[in-house]
Every structure is written in C-alpha cells, then in structure tokens.
Design a protein around this nucleic acid. Structure first.
Lengths: 211, 211, 211, 211
DNA sequence: AATGAATGAGAATTCATTCAT
DNA sequence: CATGAATGAATTCTCATTCAT
C-alpha cells in the first residue's frame, strides 16, 4: 500500500522513439482513421499522455510518422553511391534498391497510401522532404545524362517520369499484393514470384532507357 | 415548398443502388475506418436503417462497394474489342483505356488501396472477380501471342507481369498524385502532366514488348 | 413481372392464433424487452403489420400471451375432477398435475416470471383471471374441508398458503433449473432428478396437511 | 452552487463498486435486455465509458452483478453459526434467515430469475459459486445428520431437496407477489401477509423433517 | 385482409483527449 | 517526466412502429 509504481526510464528521446515506432506499425496496419491511440500507447510501452506530450495529438503523430518514412527511403538511396557507378549499373542498382527498400520496410507503402488518402495534407509544406526528393531526382537525372553522353541511353528521357515509373512498378505490385493474390490466384510474396517480378521490372526499365 | 416528403420512393432496387453509390464515394474518400455510416445514409437519401437492412453492416457494404468497383473496370475492358485489333493497336488501346478508366473513376484507386489495407479480406473467396480477372489475363495473353506470331512482339513475355505493369504505371501515378505533387513540386493532374504521363507509359509498354 | 405474390390464407382466427403461439415462445425465451417483434412475425408466418392489426403493439401482445397462459393452467385443473376424489387423492393429484403442467408447458414459468418482472401490470385489472383463480382456491379449500371433516387433515390450514406452496415447490425447482444445475452440479431435468423432486414434493405437501 | 464537479473522485475501487451497485438495481428492475447502460451510468455517478473500461460490456457487467448476488446470499448464511445450534434451531434459523435475506435484498430474486431466463450462461463455469453452494449444502446436510442422530429428524432426508424447498417456499412467494396480488386479491407484502407466510413456511419445513 | 419497404428514436459501444496525482 | 482514471462526443447498430400498395 502506498507502494510507488516504478516509472519507466526517464529517457525522453527513447520514449519519443518508442512511440514513433509503435505508431508507424499501427498506422501502417490500419490507416489514420483505423489506428488506435490506445494501441499505440500500449505497444510503445509508454502511456497515452506521453503521446499528447510529445506529439500533440493523433494527427501530428501521423505527420511525424509519414515524415520519418520518407526521410528513411531517401536516406537509403543517397548511400548507394550511384554517382560513382556506370550509368547502366547505377540504374540497375537503383531499381534493385528501391524494390529492396519496399520489402525491408513493409510499412512504408501503406503509410504512403494513407498519406495520399488524406491528400498529402500531413506533409504539405514540408520543405525538408521536398529538398530530399529534389536531390534524388537530380541524382537520377545525372545518371541519365551520363548514360546519354556515353550513347548508352536514349536522349530526352524525363528523369521525373523515370523516377515515378521505377517506384510504380515495384510499389504497385507490393501494395496490391493482397487483392492481386485473390484476383490472379497466386502468392505475390513467394520467393519465386518476387524474383520474377524484380527481373521483369529491371527489364522494363532497361528497355525504357537503353538506345 | 413545405411539402413533406415523408417516405422515399418504394423502390428497393433504387434504394440499394443509391446507398451503394453514396458508399462508394464515402469509402473512397475516407477509407473503411474513416467512412461514416451516417454520412452514407444522408448522402444516399435513404436512412441508416436501410443500410443495415440491405447490406447487413458497414463491412458488408464495403464488400459490395469493392466488388462493384472491380466488376466495373473489367466490364469496361471487355467492351474494347481488343481481340479484333492488331496486336500493337490492342496494347495501345489497353494502356489508354486503363488510364482513362482510372481518370473517369477516381474512386476506384482509393477503394483498391483500402481493400489492400485490409488485406483483401473483403473479396477473399469471391469467385466472380477471380473469373473476370482470369478472362482479362487471357485476353492480354491473346494479344501477346498474336503479336509474337506476327514477329512484332518478343517471345516469352509473361502476360500476368504485363498486366500488373500496365496497371502499375498508371495507378501509382494517380494514387500518389498528392504526395507526388508535394515532393516533386508540380501538379500531377494538369492537362499537360497527364498527357505527358500517358505518353511515357505508352512508350514504356511498347518498348517492353516490341522486338 | 407484375406477378402477384400469394397471400396467406385469409383466415383471421388462424393468423391471430399463429401470432399468439409464436409470441408465447419468443416472450418465454427472451422476456418482454428481449423479444423481437420481427422474430415473432417471421416465426408466425404472418408479417409485422398483422401483429399491429390484431394486437395493437408489442405490449398488448404480451398481455394477450400472459392471459392465455394463465387461462391454460386453470383450465387444466378444472378438468381433473378433484371434487369427486377422496381428499388425499385429490391433493396428490393436484400436486402431480401442477408439476406436469409445468413440464408440459415450459413457457409458462418464464412467462409468469416476466409478468412479475413488470409488476404484473399486464394482468392488472383482469377480472377473468381473478375469477379463475378464485374458483381454484375454492376447490382447494373444498379439499381441505373434506379432509378435515374426515379427520385426515389438520384443522386450520390456509388454502391460499397451500396453493402457493404447491406451486412454489414445483415452479421454483423448474424455473431455477439452469442456475441450479450450475450451482448444485447436477442435471435438474434428468428423468431421475425429476422423479425424485416430484416424490419429495408429494411428501412435503402430505406431511403438511395430514394430521 | 455553480461549482463544477468536473471529475469524480479518482478512486477505481469506488467507481467499480458504484457501477456494480447501480447495475444491480437496474438489472433487477428491468432484466438484462430491459436494462439501459445509460441509466446505470447516470445512476452510478460514473459515465458510460467507465462501464466498458471496468467490465467490458453490458453482458459482463450482468455477470458481475449475478456473481456478486450469489456470493452475498451465501456469505450471509455462513455467518449464522448454524453448526453451533441445536438441529431444530438451526433449521428454524435457516428458514428465517433465507426469508429475511430475500426481504432485505429485493433485487436478488429478480436477478436470479434473469440469470435463469438466460439459461445461467452468465455463471456457467463459475467455480467459486459452485464451491460456495457446496459448502452450503454440506452445512444443511450436517444439520440433518445431527438431527437424525438425536432422533429428532427422520432418516434419509435429501439435503439438496431440502435446500431447494427452503428456498422455493420463500422465493416463489416473493417473486410472484405481483401476479399473486392480482390473482389472489390481497397484498402479498403487508406486514401480516409476510408474517403469515413465514409461519406457514416454518411449519412446512418442520413437518417435513421432524419424525 | 395482407405485404414488406421505410423510418426515427434510441441503445450499445468506441475513441481521442484531458485531468488529478 | 510520468501515470492512468475519467470524460464527452461520436459512431455503429437496433427496434418498435408506420406507410404505400
């Protein structure tokens, strides 16, 4: 009686990170409207009050999750060293890396879908993400220019459209894996199916750019 | 004016259809969890009770909406007369028609995303959709075979992967138009942007299949 | 199209009786609040509108059911010919008949409980039932008098209290058979258990009245 | 006045107990189906959300109420000190105490009826109640044995049947007091009527067991 | 007499958020 | 910084009853 319950480690950084991690999972699984603040609090090991303390509310927490997700994917790409590779190799590496990022971060695709369902208002005006994206497009543009200069790639390929297509052919396959499984009647996530898709996508991109 | 419209037309078919139409819009806009039964009832001109009477509940209504959406897109394709066209024309027409369907039915893409968020459990076991999809794939396979026989198309192109890619390059662009707009910094839905994207996609597909 | 649905037999008496029978079962199973007008309509083979037509509403239907139930049990007793039997035999027959009525009409006990939950307001002022009850008590009083005159029964036994006790020892056992089963740990409705209880009750009543 | 009682005492135990008490009254008055969660919330001074927090739902709250009711009656009996009394006195005390418990806890009888209406599923598998009941029966069996040993009581009286009968003759009178009042035409709850009934019941039980 | 579609009021349940400690 | 009890506003779902045919 009167016994004092042990508080969790008074570690603000950790608490914040734990909440964010739990929120990422929950929002990815159920979307913004379907996610439960209670569930996030429980899963994070913190409590509901902390969510409001650190993030202000459910929507702001969602914002933080989305931002973090986009920072994550762009960070990965900048570490590939694409600028040092031959153009063809760089493009190949980019397609593979994008695909692999989706596979390693299964929450990313549903988070992006949720962000779009809400018309991207949770990242509207986010300069940082705009900047990261810009440097990404420039990197791809650089690859195309080098390829073109070497007479390997066609002229006039729009780097933005290429970026979108590289994302599309992987992202769509994975985000629609459930309905795809039902409609097409095979397991989209089997090792074979995944390998086949990656190969097909590499083909698609290469045929698109090579002269 | 002042006239009391106590009861709506005693027309079960119409009532059901009105609810379904209102539900399609609401679910597309806010997802399964975000959609409000009340809003659907009001928008449909019917009342909440009718939703439960005709569909059983929110989830079953969602099921009906998703099923209807898939039936709609497949129905459009079967009316294109692809089998009567030259292979190249047929493929071109298919890419254009798919793209146009997405533009004409903006709800379709978010509904599909919602269905996938919930792991496709709302269409699991739906034989009809499986069948429709099958005949769609077969139609595409037919185009590929004819193209191959005419030495226009490469050999060994997987029709399933092609179907997925044709959908992906249009669908992804449109579903991600909001975050895309923020990140890339241009309006994905401007006339020019749309025309450019369609052209790029046609290019992508043609380069993929042509010898 | 324009095909006319077959109406059920235009037989008011039958329709009313069917509704009443279905209502008895439903009210007995779930009580007044738990019973569903829809269920009664479906089970009766009629439709909801008929319930309102014939009875006015759910509460009035309940009234009709309760009244019918009480008329039923009293009707049974008056047919036993108790007045023609020796007092001991008459009492014995009455205990057995009461018990048997409960067993044959399992709905009776829960209906009575429901009527009491609602403080008997559904039979308040019902002269007919009061009259039937009166003649029942008089019949029992007659038995006691004859028994007393023959020096078989004690003097001064209150017929009302006896009536209540005869009902109580059977009714309570049966109405509480479910909780009884859980708490005492045996099946109150097995052939053996029922026989044992009846014997015990006969004993109880006989010892109560015999000199 | 004008003072805002925004939050009630932060006392989980009390809150839970308040809800339980309010629920007991409401369920007793209207049954499981007739009871209103809103009413319970208001009457308890808590709010609806707390009911779901502490009990999970209406049905589970009902379970808790029923369990508490049964624990209550058994607790009372174990405090009577029956084992220290002469057999006849013990039996007398038990009949009186049972009767008095019903009178002091008017909710008990309708709760038991409700539990039985729902086929005792709310206490099915409740080991604690089974155990309490068992020790109760054993206590009664002990009285019978002592009485028998002292040649005061008949041999071979089934303690379970006796328990049931002791409950029945009081319980039935009280649960049926409303219909009884209408049918028999007197007030079952007048001081006189109650006294008379208790005396009759004592008589019934004593004649049943005495040699 | 009979039907079943339609309704509004209400009931159970859920949820993001705030308050006292 | 941390906790978890408490809350009000929604939200889904239900139900007795009425209306048009």
């Amino acid at each position: 009686m009167g016994e004092k319950m042990a508080f969790r480690a008074r570690n603000p950084e950790q608490t914040r990170a734990d909440i964010l991690a739990a929120a990422r999972v929950e929002f990815a699984r159920l979307g913004l409207a379907g996610a439960r603040v209670d569930t996030i609090a429980d899963a994070s090991g913190a409590n509901k009050r902390m969510i409001y303390h650190y993030f202000g509310g459910k929507e702001q927490l969602f914002e933080a999750v989305i931002e973090e997700a986009y920072i994550g994917i762009r960070a990965g790409e900048s570490e590939l060293g694409l600028d040092e590779m031959a153009p063809t190799d760089a493009l190949h590496a980019l397609v593979v890396a994008t695909w692999q990022y989706y596979l390693d971060n299964p929450e990313f695709i549903t988070l992006v879908n949720s962000a779009n369902l809400h018309q991207a208002r949770h990242i509207a005006g986010n300069k940082q993400l705009r900047k990261l994206q810009k440097s990404y497009v420039e990197r791809v543009a650089g690859i195309l220019q080098r390829g073109e200069a070497q007479r390997k790639f066609r002229k006039g390929i729009d780097p933005v459209q290429l970026c979108i297509t590289i994302a599309a052919i992987g992202f769509y396959y994975l985000t629609n894996r459930h309905t795809g499984g039902v409609l097409f009647g095979f397991n989209f996530m089997s090792r074979d199916a995944l390998a086949k898709r990656l190969q097909f996508n590499l083909d698609t991109v290469m045929r698109l750019v090579l002269v």
